[in-house]
């Protein structure tokens, strides 16, 4: 009798553990096809619009961005980790801009999760962000993802007229050594 109790208890525990671990490890994934349909507010400045190859004041979708590879950073002006990471991301952007093979073909887009245009602009000015930032006040990005959206999250996307938008890599949290991440971007360029 006692053995049965022990066995039952152990089985129950094991199930609990597996369930817990699998929930904790629920992988964050973006549905690229759904993301391609999301309409974002255009960035505030003309410079940012030109950078993305956009014009006008209407909302835009990611496939309209003039790029072979899009690096999306989902951030929040309020997120202290995003603030601490801002200079590192700027550095990554500078590396891309100074590489003739990547400049003009790889575009960076910051998506401010839960942020208003005003809040996104505070972040842009504070950290002198040279790429485009747009607000996502309604947390749309979460709606096209599985797993909990944490900030910052980086998604490298390949654009292709035939295949459409595809996810090359997703990274949650700080980037660390950006020269390593540059390799991921170059890999995405080769595949696109």
């Amino acid at each position: 009798m006692q053995r049965i109790v022990v066995l039952l208890a152990l089985t129950g525990c094991l199930l609990g553990l597996v369930q817990g671990v699998s929930l904790a490890a629920e992988k964050f994934q973006v549905d690229a096809a759904a993301l391609a349909k999301l309409a974002f507010e255009p960035p505030k400045t003309e410079q940012e619009k030109q950078y993305l190859g956009l014009s006008g004041t209407e909302k835009f979708t990611l496939p309209r961005i003039k790029a072979r590879v899009i690096v999306v950073e989902v951030f929040s002006m309020y997120c202290p980790i995003c603030q601490a990471e801002a200079e590192n991301v700027n550095e990554l952007h500078r590396l891309v801009e100074s590489d003739a093979a990547l400049k003009g073909k790889v575009k960076f887009l910051g998506v401010g999760a839960g942020n208003t245009p005003f809040e996104v602009n505070v972040f842009r000015e504070k950290f002198n962000v040279a790429f485009a930032l747009v607000p996502d006040d309604g947390f749309q990005f979460q709606k096209v993802s599985t797993g909990v959206l944490k900030t910052p999250t980086f998604v490298v996307l390949s654009t292709d007229r035939r295949k459409g938008l595809t996810v090359v890599e997703t990274h949650v949290g700080r980037l660390g050594d950006v020269t390593k991440y540059l390799k991921t971007i170059k890999k995405a360029m080769k595949g696109s």
Binding site: A9, C13, G16, L17, L23, K150
Partner: peptide, 22 residues
């Protein structure tokens, strides 16, 4: 039995708690 069960339950709860937060 009691100790092992308790420990396992705790471990399960810990893993789930981590996933719930941002």
């Amino acid at each position: 039995i009691v100790i092992v069960t308790g420990l396992c339950l705790l471990a399960g709860a810990w893993a789930q708690g981590r996933s719930a937060g941002l």
